[in-house]
Computed example of a mutant assay.
Amino acid sequence: MELVIINTGCANIASVAFAIERLGMKVRVSDQPNEIESADKLFLPGVGAAASAMQSIREKGLDTLLPGLTQPVLGICLGMQLMGRHSEEGNANCLGMIEADTKRMRAEGLRLPHMGWNTVQFPRQSALFEGIDAGTYFYFVHGFAMALGDYTLASCDYGQPFSAAIGKDNFYGVQFHPERSGAAGARLLHNFIHNL
Rank of each mutant, 00 (worst) to 15 (best):
A154E: 08
R104Q: 15
G159D: 01
T152S: 14
H86D: 00
D40Y: 01
E130M: 00
G116N: 10
G173W: 05
L128W: 14
G182E: 08
E35Y: 00
G84F: 09
R180E: 06
G143L: 06
V120H: 07
F122E: 08
R104H: 15
E59S: 10
A145T: 05
T64P: 02
E99D: 15
C10T: 12
T70M: 03
G149W: 00
L112S: 04
F162E: 11
L112D: 04
G46A: 06
K60A: 04
E37N: 05
N93F: 09
L153I: 13
A17W: 02
L128S: 13
N191C: 07
V73A: 01
A127G: 13
D150M: 05
A14H: 15
Q160V: 09
K168V: 02
K41R: 15
G135R: 07
C156R: 04
D157A: 12
F192M: 05
I13H: 08
S52V: 13
G24Y: 07
A19L: 11
M115L: 12
P67W: 01
V27C: 11
S38Q: 14
A186F: 00
K103F: 11
A147N: 13
C94T: 14
I193T: 04
H177Y: 10
N12E: 08
A145N: 11
F162Q: 11
V47E: 10
M54N: 03
G68F: 03
L153F: 07
L148A: 05
N91L: 14
M1V: 13
E37W: 00
L42R: 11
P161Y: 03
T64K: 15
P113H: 10
D63A: 12
A186Y: 00
S52P: 01
K26D: 13
T152E: 06
N118Q: 07
Q125G: 10
Q71C: 09
L110G: 00
I166K: 05
M83V: 03
G24L: 07
I36P: 10
L65S: 03
F171E: 03
V16F: 11
D40G: 12
G96S: 09
I6E: 04
L196V: 06
N34P: 00
L82R: 00
L66N: 02
L3F: 04
L189N: 05
S163F: 07
S38D: 08
Y139S: 09
S181I: 08
Q32D: 13
R22C: 07
V120D: 04
T8Y: 03
F171S: 05
V73S: 01
V141W: 10
Q81I: 02
R58L: 04
T8V: 02
I20G: 03
A19R: 11
T70R: 13
F138M: 15
Y158K: 04
H86V: 00
Q175K: 08
I98G: 09
E59Y: 01
V27M: 10
V4I: 14
